[in-house]
Computed example of a mutant assay.
Amino acid sequence: MSTPESPRTPLDLGLDGGALTAQLVDFPSVSGDEAALADAVEAALRPLPHLVVDRYGNNVVARTRLGRPERVVLAGHLDTVPIADNLPSRVEGDLLYGCGTSDMKAGVAVQLRIAATVPDPNRDLTFVFYDCEEVEASRNGLGHLARERPEWLQGDFAVLLEPSSAVVEGGCQGTLRAEVRITGQRAHSARSWLGDNAIHRMAEVLGRLAAYQPRRVAIDGLEYREGLNAVRIEGGVAGNVIPDLCTVTVNFRFAPDRSVAEAEAHVREVLQGFEVVVTDSAPGALPGLAHPAAKAFVEATGGEPRAKYGWTDVARFSGLGIPAVNYGPGDPNLAHKREEHCSLQAIAECERQIRSWLTS
């Protein structure tokens, strides 16, 4: 299936949050193909006189310079997972459907609305729009900014507008991907006894993963649930050949009380006796809700904080020494689904809450 072409219509920051989200969704921006959307975001922000706008690659950063005693970073990624026949966007009642509506173009729309309509906030603001969040950590645009332009990210507190149903979600899980490889011996399938079937031998690995009992752990009053799962399997060369190689990719989502090294050691323990090659990893982040800025944000937005299931860039902000929370209008349970959608009312409410926090 061919990818829809990006529209050439400029982003209109005067639209309400739902309509602006629809505009953003209709810019296809699968990871690695965010340039057109980054261009549109940059073009929409540069005319605003209260912002200084910079760009590095497909990452756009806009900042106020009002001399306030506190600086808050509002961050969101521009990319989406691959399109699943869910573009262009469409509205049904209160729901906006389309790739990226929930994860996380609704959050990006809130960022843009605040950037355009709150020229005199009670805190200095930094708006960060970055690429390649949905792929391996080495490509993450926020990571590139942290390494190459760290001064652009300086702040006292950060809000990542990842989908959280407009409730603060603290911290995040860590993530680790690894490949389990089993070799065998090729043979003609009509003489299978002369070979050693690598796919069949993978059954023990799959059995261990199916029987795995994930840990639940409470941290600062929030419960994190771990998971160790097979997410991909490859093997076989032809319909008449006994396969001599089978590879299973596993993904371990671990609570933030484990380090990456501890997570790797755990995976190797579960799969002891098999070849395990770690291909990608990123640490989690502790909730940090006791920090004064985080406590103030929770009080301002209301609701009962929850643990974030999934990895987000709060971990990267935490690594920079900046306390951060997840707070966005999307429903995290709808992320990456073919039927992904977001409530228009939730977008408006999230924008209202953040606006009130920044102007009261």
Rank of each mutant, 00 (worst) to 15 (best):
L15N: 01
F129G: 01
I242W: 07
P4L: 00
A230D: 09
E304T: 15
G235H: 06
R139G: 00
L209Q: 03
P47N: 10
C99S: 02
N326K: 09
H336A: 04
V250G: 11
G170S: 09
E134D: 04
L145T: 06
L78E: 10
D280R: 08
V159Y: 07
L13E: 03
L15D: 02
A285R: 05
R306M: 08
A348L: 11
T312A: 01
L51P: 09
S165E: 11
V53W: 11
R208E: 04
R201K: 13
I219C: 14
V61W: 11
C172A: 03
S165I: 04
D120R: 14
A348G: 14
F157L: 05
P287M: 08
A36G: 09
A106Y: 01
R201I: 05
A218D: 13
E223A: 11
V260H: 15
A38Y: 13
G18F: 01
Q154V: 03
G141H: 04
A296C: 14
A218V: 13
P329C: 12
A109M: 03
G67E: 08
L51Q: 13
P332S: 10
V277G: 03
A300M: 14
R63W: 07
A255K: 08
F27A: 00
D54Y: 10
G76V: 13
P119K: 08
R338V: 05
A307V: 01
A300L: 14
S89E: 00
F157R: 07
I219K: 14
I354M: 06
W193Y: 15
N229I: 11
S89M: 00
A348N: 09
G93A: 09
E275Y: 13
D244P: 02
R352P: 00
V81N: 09
A238C: 07
L344C: 01
A282T: 10
I242H: 06
E70N: 11
V168T: 06
S102H: 03
F129Y: 10
E151K: 15
P163W: 01
Y212D: 06
Q345A: 04
D196R: 07
P10E: 01
L271C: 10
A230G: 14
N58M: 02
A146H: 11
S281T: 13
V231S: 12
G107H: 08
V270S: 08
H200I: 06
D156S: 02
A109N: 02
A348H: 11
D26P: 01
L48H: 05
E133I: 01
G170T: 07
L209H: 06
L87I: 00
A300C: 15
